[in-house]
Computed example of a mutant assay.
Amino acid sequence: MSLSSPSSFADRCARADGGITRVQGIEVGHYTDARRPTGCTVVMARAGAVGGVDVRGAAPGTRETDLLHPTNLVEQVHAVMLAGGSAWGLDAATGAVQWLEEHGVGLDVHYARLPLVPAAVLFDLGVGDARIRPDAQAGYAACAAASSAAPAEGNVGAGTGACVGKVFGMARAMKGGIGTASVTVDGVTVGAIIACNALGDVLDPDTAQVVAGARSEDGRQLLDTRRALLRGDAPRPILAGSNTTIGVIATDARITKAQAHRLAVVSHDGLARAINPVHTMSDGDTLFTLGTGASGKTLGMMTLATMAAEATALATLRAVLCARSLTTAEGLHLPAAADIAAP
């Protein structure tokens, strides 16, 4: 049976309840490289935001994560950079620092304003020419494009070269992407933006139905990686660190640094609802949190945590629903969720 028609997938992608920019004080900008499928995405909080992070995958590529630990000195950061290009892509954060400094954004360290920009990268080097990856110029361009408008989703920014469902080889994988979602309760909003380049499948978090992931040997149907592994199908050898889902969860609630860290931790519950398998030895799954406090309100952590996990799960789903199929010059074909039948 068909999982869905292409038009219904387009409809589901268009019917957004709102993305991370519904959070007061948050802007998002993408840079998409026209030379090959790669790019970067900046999530900016010009006035500063309390930051947190939680790394669950075993093969992360990150920058400035230690300063976000609740016991360390710095309270606020000014942006988070998400990028393709594996470790090379971390250079995109340098461009963000330059742009923010030029615009007077940063921590006052007496002699200058120092922008603080943590970052995380995903591995998209197998999609097109690996010599092309996001650099400082790309990060600068993403900042210049940032706004509070609803962010583009799918094959843009850090999600441009993302793919999912690689347990049985790249030839049976599908197109990933970047997605965003938000939840509002009592005047407080929690939003997420997720670049999904998972080793595993992506599921609808409400139905647990596989939406995108590893395909059958003929490439025409979704395989369902979890069930395939449990019945004894052997995974293909996987290059360590060649996957990773990265993202930012932001709220305009007033939160402490310890609470920001806890929201990053529980947001991974949203990933676990939408990706299976997740947090593997070949993923570097990393989620950041930003608290702008711009609503002037607080909510109990039970509610905020539930909102954070929900927004993360929905944004992960939208990352593949909004993706489009891709064929590289080298002949790699990555169909989108709308193109493949259900298992």
Score class of each variant (00 low, 15 high):
residue 95 G to P: 05
residue 92 A to W: 06
residue 97 V to M: 15
residue 127 V to C: 04
residue 154 G to Y: 05
residue 108 D to A: 05
residue 92 A to G: 08
residue 154 G to Q: 06
residue 156 V to S: 05
residue 143 C to A: 10
residue 111 Y to D: 10
residue 152 A to R: 15
residue 147 S to R: 10
residue 79 A to G: 07
residue 123 F to V: 09
residue 50 V to W: 14
residue 92 A to M: 05
residue 105 V to L: 03
residue 73 L to V: 09
residue 80 V to N: 13
residue 120 A to V: 08
residue 78 H to G: 04
residue 130 A to M: 01
residue 62 T to S: 10
residue 62 T to P: 06
residue 135 D to N: 15
residue 108 D to Y: 00
residue 87 A to E: 04
residue 92 A to F: 06
residue 112 A to I: 00
residue 73 L to Q: 10
residue 87 A to T: 12
residue 156 V to Y: 04
residue 114 L to P: 01
residue 139 G to T: 02
residue 113 R to A: 00
residue 96 A to P: 12
residue 152 A to N: 13
residue 131 R to C: 00
residue 111 Y to K: 08
residue 148 S to D: 14
residue 143 C to V: 12
residue 135 D to T: 12
residue 89 G to C: 01
residue 136 A to D: 04
residue 94 T to R: 07
residue 115 P to S: 12
residue 81 M to R: 03
residue 60 P to R: 14
residue 146 A to R: 10
residue 112 A to S: 12
residue 131 R to D: 07
residue 149 A to P: 05
residue 110 H to L: 09
residue 87 A to D: 03
residue 110 H to K: 08
residue 61 G to Q: 14
residue 89 G to E: 01
residue 114 L to R: 10
residue 145 A to D: 14
residue 78 H to D: 04
residue 50 V to E: 14
residue 104 G to K: 01
residue 144 A to V: 07
residue 77 V to A: 07
residue 76 Q to K: 14
residue 100 L to I: 06
residue 124 D to M: 00
residue 80 V to H: 12
residue 62 T to Y: 06
residue 143 C to L: 15
residue 81 M to Y: 03
residue 100 L to C: 06
residue 84 G to P: 03
residue 138 A to K: 01
residue 99 W to C: 11
residue 70 P to F: 14
residue 149 A to T: 14
residue 55 V to C: 12
residue 95 G to R: 04
residue 69 H to F: 08
residue 107 L to C: 07
residue 117 V to P: 11
residue 90 L to K: 03
residue 65 T to I: 15
residue 119 A to Q: 07
residue 66 D to R: 13
residue 111 Y to M: 09
residue 133 R to V: 10
residue 95 G to H: 04
residue 65 T to N: 03
residue 140 Y to W: 11
residue 120 A to S: 15
residue 62 T to L: 04
residue 110 H to A: 09
residue 70 P to M: 12
residue 75 E to L: 13
residue 151 P to K: 13
residue 63 R to K: 15
residue 139 G to D: 02
residue 93 A to K: 06
residue 77 V to P: 08
residue 131 R to M: 01
residue 114 L to M: 14
residue 55 V to F: 10
residue 76 Q to P: 00
residue 115 P to R: 11
residue 63 R to D: 11
residue 57 G to I: 14
